[in-house]
Design a protein around this nucleic acid. Structure first.
Lengths: 186, 186
DNA sequence: CGCCGAGTTGAACTGAATCAAGAAACGTGG
DNA sequence: CCACGTTTCTTGATTCAGTTCAACTCGGCG
């Protein structure tokens, strides 16, 4: 199903796909396992075949803030760290037993240089990601707590009821207590 | 100075640059002129040579919300609209008499297909933009009004005192009154 | 001179945070 | 399969940062 995702954005040839796919390595990851810690270089890009991941960071006063959720059929990484090879500001964690397909930075760079289609793919993927972030920003910036939760349900319908309340609350920039009260009144 | 910006991210050859640069067209734009309205397709990508631009949208109750500021030496567009060719959610406006260099979507597509370096350039540019948005999101999501203003001063040092207070306030997700009070106490 | 948009100031109000308990659910070992 | 501790979730009371509304100041310009 990585294939489906690849050709959805860019018309890779069969040859290209046959060359590219083997660089993705299947990994079984247990619930609560960390893929990266803050400060580390993110050396792999992950594709979620099964399960859920999230990225988060710790504030100066130690609060855990979810930055993003990664559901099935999505790429998962500390974007800036992976592509800009800077120390990651985020932790990357798996919230359920998951099946991931990973490609190393080194192999990705090789494929980017080799295939213009790969460049195009990553470009389009990044633009898509950017659009999602902008969408979240708009939801967070000018909406009430209840409206933010509505946005969450729309953006992550399958995830909203499978992860701890606190993770969702911090993702939305509200407290767990507030979110609990919102849920009570549907 | 587009040249400088291009080669800062990707080592274009002289030949490539000589082919690429002529596709950028110089435009003198007067203060308060609109480049795109909501609902239109964004058919050009602009590079700010001089002046300031901003993107904004109108909420359902008619409030004007600044989404981003574009200073000198930055690319300016309704990103998703330009690259995904979807109707723009945003207005694009110039806040001072400005000098812009524009390239059409059509020519950009042609250059993207022709030069792998161009693909790479746009990929890196998008990742950089993504990083900036993430930075703003973090600032907005969990910081007080005063801290947000501090972020603004750091992100747009040259712009913070050249545009109307209300534009900055809506950019930061606070009211004009609150921003005015913050400024009073430095 | 008087209008107009931009910015400031004050006072009352409010949505959500904080603080503090308690209830439920969950998983691990006996 | 139950008991116990841990984590997650709910509920209530109080507080506060920032909004709202409304009036006022200031500077530029026809």
């Amino acid at each position: 199903m990585i294939t489906d995702f690849l050709i959805k954005l860019v018309p890779f040839t069969c040859e290209e796909l046959n060359d590219i796919l083997p660089y993705f390595e299947k990994e079984n990851v247990k619930k609560n396992e960390l893929l990266i810690k803050e400060g580390q270089m993110c050396s792999k890009l992950y594709f979620v075949g099964q399960g859920i991941g999230r990225s988060y960071y710790l504030t100066k006063d130690g609060k855990d803030v979810t930055q993003w959720f990664f559901g099935v059929d999505n790429f998962m990484s500390s974007v800036d760290s992976f592509f800009q090879q800077s120390p990651s500001f985020y932790y990357l964690e798996v919230l359920e037993d998951s099946v991931l397909y990973s490609i190393t930075k080194k192999n990705m760079d090789m494929l980017l240089a080799k295939y213009q289609n790969m460049e195009k793919f990553i470009r389009l993927l990044t633009i898509e990601t950017l659009a999602k972030f902008v969408h979240k920003l708009n939801a967070i910036q000018f909406q009430t707590a209840k409206e933010r939760y509505t946005y969450m349900l729309a953006e992550f319908p399958d995830i909203s009821h499978r992860v701890p309340l606190g993770h969702i609350a911090s993702y939305l920039g509200i407290t767990q207590e507030t979110l609990s009260r919102i849920r009570k009144n549907h």
